[in-house]
Design a protein around this nucleic acid. Structure first.
Lengths: 343, 343
DNA sequence: CTATTTTGTGGAAACGGTTCCATTTGGACT
DNA sequence: AGTCCAAATGGAACCGTTTCCACAAAATAG
């Protein structure tokens, strides 16, 4: 039914091999025959069948992205970068959304994507070390973004530094009692990040000679709701913190909401700083630690493409720095205000 | 290298046909041989190659989505619904992002996706009527979401009603001078929607016996920036409106920003209502006209799957109703406040 | 003008499945 | 026991490309 390479060959009076050569301009084809083939192609309105093409063992022309797509705006911004780069390489983008543990195992274990994509980008998720060999065996290159595994090329932000910057900025503003809302470590997939951020907090506090008060740390899910709950706990303390650092903007948003509910003025009575730098933080004038999300997405694709071209490239670790962005939810600690309140 | 169906056949001591039959449990296979094959399959850890499978002319197992992805949060929320349903059908999701007119033509004309996907979902975009036949010829079913074409199954919201609801709610609150910020009609892809919303505005105004004042309508791009500019124009009027209806939440957000800049209090001095009901509207407490975005995405996939199963199903038009969501950017017109101001 | 490269070209084989036709097997029925 | 029919099964052909090998034609060398 559809027009095939044989039809073109017949119409041009050449062999199929020649048509194929013209299509892929591989070996030299005499200019006159070349033209003859080209004419036949356009006359018949022929398009090569991509499926048959990849059948040979070549590329599929698509990249897969395993990503907790909707739970975190962060993912979407990374995806933006991925999409930009993907388009540049003329690759298509297949999305594997991971919301649950079950889906996650589904994708990582069953590897149903045998040959369906040329490579895999994994965002904010870390595959179990034991099923990495399966991907290697399937010859499916893989790059991690916002996750780290020693066995795979990984692009991560310096989470320790980021958390350090956040706490440091608060300390510089005179805050002493600083609450820290971290993301849940177990169950969710972000073990490394949460842990690193905790380390950064400790370091900044240590440098300032302030002892870490476990009471001032609270865990919540990586969501608005999680931020709310953690904030409610922190702000209900007998001696409540004058500033809160949340390990993600989404959680910081929950803090803002809770503060409003409790009629605690931000930033006058409470400074709040988040982490990620999603678009929302800009709209809300939220101070935050900015991750280069778009850039990480783009570079991830680049690294993956390199790996597809040359499968035995060495594993790389690309580390990005965060940037402190001060907006209007943080300010110098306002002792005057506190006094007024007391009067 | 990879294990093929022949290896399995040999290992089980049967023919390839039998293995294939077991795989697709098509014709009856004797239970004993069935077991033998199954054993061989799991022993060899065999997975059928999806590419070879679709080579036969069968399905590819993926759906394509053509979508102006990153420009509008609206798209993302629709995509959410699409993803939910896609997963349920066990289909993969290929994203074709459209940012520019050029990309758009690229996808619609070149149809490079010959057999790469089983069907196409088009969001907020309307293919030119003249290249629909090409898709029909390629046997590529297509469903439109948030766009309408008489030749294709389309899922749309009742835009006329939605705009009517918005204006009506404002009128009910005593507003008489109501500004309307519409999206740009030409150039961008949303012709129908913008036009329908304009009609709805007219209808509500007409019913209330208020003449439509062209001065109170302004066009802006479907973006925060577009909303800002349009708002600046409207609010700079000698007799400025007491309420503004923006054709999208994103634009409404721009209005909010501009009002803040001009020190016009919302909702005391100005009521604002948007359109779409994106997540952001909830966070910002923005009143809006809610579209069932998730549902449209889900149903779109369902309709597309039906079309894939039975290609000659009739074209359908599915119309959804919008819901008025009143939050804290709209209120009764505050004549007392205005008087105070005058004093 | 023949011998030897070089350049260009045709077409079979291969990729890994499914499908269909032919053949074998095994009961059920005379 | 012989005939017939249904149930199982083997395997060739096919899907639409690319690749590789063999060969022809043209160009270069001797």
């Amino acid at each position: 039914m559809a027009v095939t390479i044989y039809d073109v060959a017949k119409a041009a009076g050449v062999g199929v091999g020649t048509v194929s050569r013209v299509l892929n301009n591989s070996t030299a084809v005499k200019e006159t025959t070349r033209q003859r083939v080209l004419t036949a192609i356009s006359k018949l309105d022929y398009t090569p069948d991509p499926i048959a093409r990849s059948m040979i063992g070549g590329r599929t022309g698509s990249l897969g992205v395993i990503i907790p797509f909707f739970t975190r705006p962060f993912s979407i911004e990374v995806l933006r970068g991925i999409e930009t780069a993907t388009g540049r390489y003329g690759q298509e983008l297949v999305i594997y959304n991971v919301e649950t543990q079950l889906q996650r195992e589904h994708y990582f274990n069953r590897i149903p994507m045998r040959r369906k994509v040329d490579g895999l980008l994994v965002v904010s998720l870390r595959p179990e070390i034991e099923n990495i060999p399966a991907f290697k065996a399937a010859n499916l290159p893989m790059v991690l973004i916002d996750a780290y595994s020693p066995a795979l090329t990984s692009l991560v932000v310096n989470n320790v530094l980021g958390a350090y910057q956040a706490i440091k900025s608060l300390l510089d503003k005179g805050h002493q009692r600083i609450g820290f809302i971290n993301g849940e470590i177990e169950g969710h997939f972000k073990f490394n990040q949460a842990n690193d951020r905790l380390i950064g907090v400790h370091r900044a506090l240590g440098e300032a000679g302030i002892e870490f008060d476990p009471e001032l740390m609270s865990l919540g899910s990586w969501s608005r709701q999680g931020g709310r709950q953690a904030a409610s706990q922190l702000l209900g303390l007998p001696q409540r913190p004058s500033a809160i650092f949340a390990a993600s903007d989404i959680q910081a948003l929950g803090v803002l909401e809770m503060a409003k509910e409790l009629k605690i003025a931000v930033p006058d009575e409470l400074s709040v700083i988040g982490f990620d730098g999603i678009e929302l933080s800009e709209l809300l004038e939220l101070s935050t630690i900015q991750q280069p999300m778009h850039q990480m997405g783009e570079l991830g694709v680049q690294k993956l493409m390199e790996l597809i071209e040359q499968p035995d490239r060495p594993v790389e670790l690309l580390r990005f720095n965060t940037t402190l962005v001060e907006r209007s939810t943080t300010r110098l600690i306002n002792s005057k205000f506190v006094e007024q309140k007391v009067l």
